[in-house]
Simulated assay, not measured.
Amino acid sequence: MHTVWKGSISFGLVNIPIKLHTATENKDIKLRQLHKECHAPINYKKVCSGCEKEVQNEDIVKAYEYSKNKFVVLDEEELENLKKENEDKAVEIIDFVKLQEIDPIYFEKSYFMAPDTGGGKAYTLLKKALEESGKIGVAKIIIRSKEQLAVVRVYQDTLVMETIHFPDEVRSSKDVPNIPEDVTIVKKELDTALLLIDQLTTDFEPEKYTDDYRTALMELIEQKKTGKKTVSAAEKKQPTTAANVTELMAALQASVEKTKKKKPAAKKRTTPTKTKKNA
């Protein structure tokens, strides 16, 4: 598996050198656009909207549009310094929560976590601790110049890091148009719907769900290849121009003591706990 990120993650004073590997892959079939006349691939040029000249990468700068046609230009050195300041920090698990408390709308992308050199024991410790506690860790990480909120959890026999959206990235459901209000549902309709759900309820077996469109499209492509219904592009004209691991037991004990000092005494709850959402 290709490594997409390398660094370390910590909980308390325990530091684990890790590598991230993308856990999922997009299997969409990508279709190219060709010129109908000569079947050559279509290229796209970067053209300035002002002077209408074609521009090269070295002539492009990045900017933030704070109002219509008004920009703040940011140079590469500033962006690189900002990126480095954050990427140099180890990823720290800042909280432990229950997975059921996070609605699936927050989840974005999954990464397998693998221990780097010297991190095997600490990796296994974190995995077993999460399994025993039934909790997941909440952390922050910089991936591809973007700070991400993430959770660390156990998947099968591996640690997985899931990037999740920040709260302000999730749109309010109140902004969704045309949501019906005060619609009367008669009991018979509801009972029938519940019966249908009951009849269709089963154990989740991901292997039985397949992408029928992708399968049919690949079959069509193979048929055309076999039948020699293929085209070739016209000949192109030549242009003229490691982190060290702290001893585990000592780190764990120090972390527990540190948490005790910082955490105020728990108050007795007088109100019922928050109802968990169903995933």
Rank of each mutant, 00 (worst) to 15 (best):
K83M: 11
T246S: 11
D95C: 09
D28Y: 14
M1E: 05
G227D: 08
T192V: 12
D103G: 02
T202G: 14
T184Y: 15
K45G: 08
R171C: 08
T241R: 15
G134W: 05
Y209E: 10
Y64C: 04
K45C: 10
G118A: 07
K261C: 02
L13A: 08
I142S: 04
I164W: 00
A23L: 02
P272C: 14
E37I: 08
I197C: 12
N178W: 06
K277A: 10
R214Y: 03
I102A: 02
G137L: 01
K19I: 02
E181D: 10
V256I: 02
P115N: 10
E181M: 12
L196T: 13
A265G: 10
E131L: 12
H39W: 13
N69W: 13
E92P: 01
F107P: 00
K187I: 07
A139W: 00
W5T: 00
T273C: 14
E222N: 11
G7Y: 02
K84A: 13
L99K: 04
L79K: 06
I197A: 13
K228C: 04
A129V: 01
W5S: 01
Q100I: 09
D88I: 05
V256D: 01
F112Y: 09
V152Y: 02
V72N: 06
H21L: 08
W5G: 00
E205S: 05
V72D: 05
E247F: 02
I9A: 04
N86H: 14
E101Q: 06
L200P: 01
T230L: 10
V154T: 03
S145N: 13
N26L: 06
A254M: 07
S173R: 15
D203E: 15
K46R: 15
A90C: 14
S10V: 02
S145T: 08
T210N: 07
T230Y: 09
L220W: 11
R144A: 11
T124M: 06
G134T: 03
E80L: 13
N244P: 02
V160H: 03
A234Y: 04
K267H: 07
E222K: 11
R269H: 03
R269S: 03
S173Y: 15
G134L: 05
S172V: 02
F112W: 08
D175A: 12
L200G: 09
N81T: 07
S133R: 06
H35W: 12
L149T: 03
A254P: 00
I94D: 14
A129W: 00
E76A: 08
W5N: 01
V186E: 15
I141T: 00
P167A: 12
